[in-house]
Each structure stands twice: as structure tokens, then as C-alpha cells.
Design a protein around this nucleic acid. Sequence first.
RNA 1: CGGGGCGUAGCGCAGUCCGGUUAGCGCGCCUGCCUUGGGAGCAGGAGGUCCCCGGUUCAAAUCCGGGCGCCCCGACCA
Length: 490
Amino acid sequence: MAEKITPQSEDFSRWYVDVVRHAGLADYSAVRGCMVIKPYGFAIWENIRDQLDKMIKETGHQNAYFPLFIPVSFFSREAEHVEGFAKEAAVVTHYRLRLNPDTGEIEPDPEAKLTEPLIVRPTSETIIWNTFKDWIHSWRDLPLKINQWANVVRWEMRPRLFLRTAEFLWQEGHTAHATAQEAMEEAKQMWHVYETLMRDFLAIAPYKGMKTPGERFAGAEETFTLEALMKDKKALQMGTSHFLGQNFAKAFEVMFTNKQGEREYVWATSWGVSTRLIGALIMSHGDDKGLKIPPRIAPVQVVIIPIFKSGSDEEKVLDVANSITERLRNAGIRVLLDDDNTKRPGWKYNEYELKGVPVRIALGPRDVENGVVEVARRDTLQKMQFSIDDLEEKVIELLDDIQQSMLVENERWHRENTIPVSSMNELKEVIEARKGFALAFWDGTPQDEEKLQEETGATIRCILPDDSEEGTCIVTGKKTRQKVLIALAY
RNA sequence: CGGGGCGUAGCGCAGUCCGGUUAGCGCGCCUGCCUUGGGAGCAGGAGGUCCCCGGUUCAAAUCCGGGCGCCCCGACCA
């Protein structure tokens, strides 16, 4: 049942939780920090996943699957990598339980202690590179381009549905290359693939940039990121692609013999996006009525709601409703006919608006008489009338238009909430007033960056690739071509 | 991991300060009637280890001690 949801302006966090729960995306579970993804939420994930999977395969990658458990000794091979993830690792120490004869309680059997503890993967670089070592011997084995769809565990102190949970679903790509240049191109390629997914399917137009050394993935030499601004004007990292250099190759001694017969370390990348994308989707498009899902990933693109007074109208209206449902379905549209007559039309309108279904078609006796239907689009809430005759065509056109408009609207949102600043004071004003991304010239040190975060609470989300103009760094006062985006972030 | 708040029916809450009928309200649920163009109405009904353990008392949702869980806010992270 759809209860009232908290308005965004009143309390954005509560709005978010209300929408996630009332729209049936996910629930809290019995396990702290872990969520249950419900069918409707999982259907969104499946659509995102299927699309991205296709794109990953089209760019020459193959899916595989690696173990959930990683020996601690593997994990500690790459120094920065351990440091980055140690604080949130779940550790498996026993392989059996027993009934304690004294207390009567179930406990890990002291006799069944693992000689080496395992951690539950927070990411799979180490186990994968340990494996790649056996797969790669010659330049002929390269490039090696592998992806896996998996769950990972990071024991988060402060969970939030979809955005930060102890366990989450994602895809992690891992590739090995003969040259640094090729690996760098791979990392950038997948960065672009993510951008395409976000723009063309999620209708989100994130900024593309590089992470500063302090914000890089643990073990990476360069991290490419996609940063979007949510409706509360906080930034969210939607995905990252890393150039790993030879760090993991060296840690796991992954070498190949090149065409000259010399042994060389390989060059690596890794890249991932997670169920966090669903969080981004909710917070990028949603309004006080609930979700807005872009047509291309909406589990239901069109909902059809028949309206009738019981009796003679019923059959007539349902006949037409059934026939247009079938026609739209045959046209490749994901359509749901809601002919449940225990719920009234008004209730359904609200329910499907909450669930973010892009298009609603209502038809009653009057419409049937006139050969039309009432069509309402979720993004603008605009209502119109379509003739039944060429309905397929019109609906396909409308779905395309909604997809496009949502992207345009999101681009506008980013543009309007990106504010150039030319001094620390201006930056503070922008951050304190919570105006979104501050755009600044930056040439500071990691220490300056730390100070920035202490003073404002905001972080450098990314360094923009565009270095076409020169300006003055807001901390050092030096001339620089490097521009950064600064914002409060999730 | 620090600060705050909350655990009473499926959900949201009142009752707790000041112990005392059969623990209550709204929503939801079930049955029936009626209704269907923006979250209908009426009637009847079901549903509770009052988070757990211990203590005080003639009597505990309420007081005392201990524990557990969750949410929110901060530091860390996809």
C-alpha cells in the first residue's frame, strides 16, 4: 500500500527511504547493513545488468566467476590495496559449528579453525591476479579481458539502502595488457561505456573526470570516475574505471614473454558499477510523488488502467484494454494491464506514479465510444489523448521522448548547479549554501585537499579532463590548467 | 566507531513521567453490501511473548539493573 511519502524539501533522507520501501524496491533485512532487493527493484537491476552485460561483451570481454573467499595472504600482497579494504573486511575463521555442551549454545567449533583465515571479497583483484598468473605466459595470451557479475562485502559502518550496504551486487572487469598504453585505453574505453549506459539508459549525465591521488582506488595509478549530482545537491560516484599500472602484476608476479623473447610484467585495469546505480536513479529523477524511471530500463513501460461501472461497460472496456495491451506487447513494449477491480483507478494512478512507470494509459466507456485513450506521462505529469488506431506508433514515440527529456532535464540540472568559484571564500559560500558542484582551478597538494575537506566537509570529486583554459588555483594562487569539481558527497 | 533517538498488532503511533479495569488509535488485513474518470463509504470481524533477561511490588508496557536490536546525525567507503 502506498502511504504518504515525506516531501523532498522536508527531509531528503526520509523521502529516499520512503520511496525505496513504498515503491517496493528494497527492504531492510534481519542482517544489519544488508538489504533485501524486492522483485520490482531487482527487475530494474536486471535491466541495467542485461544492458551493460551486452555492452561489455560487445567490447570484447568474457564473463567468468571467481571465488567469494580470498585467503588473507593474497589480500595482503598489494600494500595499498590491503590498507584500503582491511577496515571493512569480513573474516571467515572457522568451517564448522558445534553445540557447546556447557552453555547449550551454537558456536564455532574450536577444533575447526581454519589454518589461514579467509576474507569475503570486498573486490576481487587479488584472487583474480593470482589466477591470471597461471593464464598468462606469452604475448599471445594478451590482452586478457574478463568480467564477473558478483556480490561483494564491505562491512560498512553506516549503511544506506542501495548506496552503501554491507553486501552489494556489482560487475567487476579485470583486464591484462602488454603495454601501458593499451591498458590505459581499456580503462578509458570502459569509462565511456559506463557513460553511455548512464546517459542513454539511466538518463543521467554525470561528469567524467579523474580522481585525485587521495581519492583513488586502493592500488590504482589512475582512477576515472563518473560523478552525478543528486536532487539534494550532493554528489554521488556512480562508477569507476582504474588503470592499475603494474602494481598487481608485480604483487602476483604476472609476467609474459614478449615478441622479443623478454619477460615483462603485464599492465592491468579494473572497473565496476554496482546496485548503487539504482540509488543514483532514484535520487536523480524522483519527485514528491515517487520514482521516475526512464523507459529504457523501466520494468513496466506502460500501465493500462481500465475504468468502468460494473455491468455492461465492464466487458466492453476490458475487451479494448486487452486488445491494446496485446498490440503494445507485440510492438515490443513492456506493458502491464491492471484489471484488478478491488482497487479503484485513483489508487492505481498514485501507485504507478510512485513506482515511476513512464506512461499510464487509462480508458473508460467514454474513451471506448470515441476510439481514444487518456495517456499520462510520468516525467511531466502531462495528460493527453491518443487515438487507438495508431497507438503503438504514438506510444513508442512518447517513450522515446520521455527518455530524451529526462536526460535533457538531468543535463540542465548539472549545468545549473555547477558554480564556478575563484577563491576559497567563494567555495565555502557555495558549499555552505549547498549549491551543488563548485568548479575551481586547483593546483593544491594532498595536504591542501585534506584541509579543504576539514574546513568545508566537501571533497574534490574529480579533476576534469578539459585543460583548455588557464586560471588561478584557489588555494595556492598559482597559474594552472587543472580544473576540479568540489562538492558534498555520498 | 563516537553523539542522539526509538523498540507496544503487518505498518505508523498513543499509553511509560505519576504502577492498578479486558492495553488503545489510525492505516492495512478478512467477510458482506455498495462502488470504480485522481488514494471511496457503511457494517461486522481477526490479529499482541508491550525487544530480551533479571529485580522491586499484592500488582509492571509503566519503576530499577543488565543485555540486544534498529534508525538518525558525524568520521571512513561503490
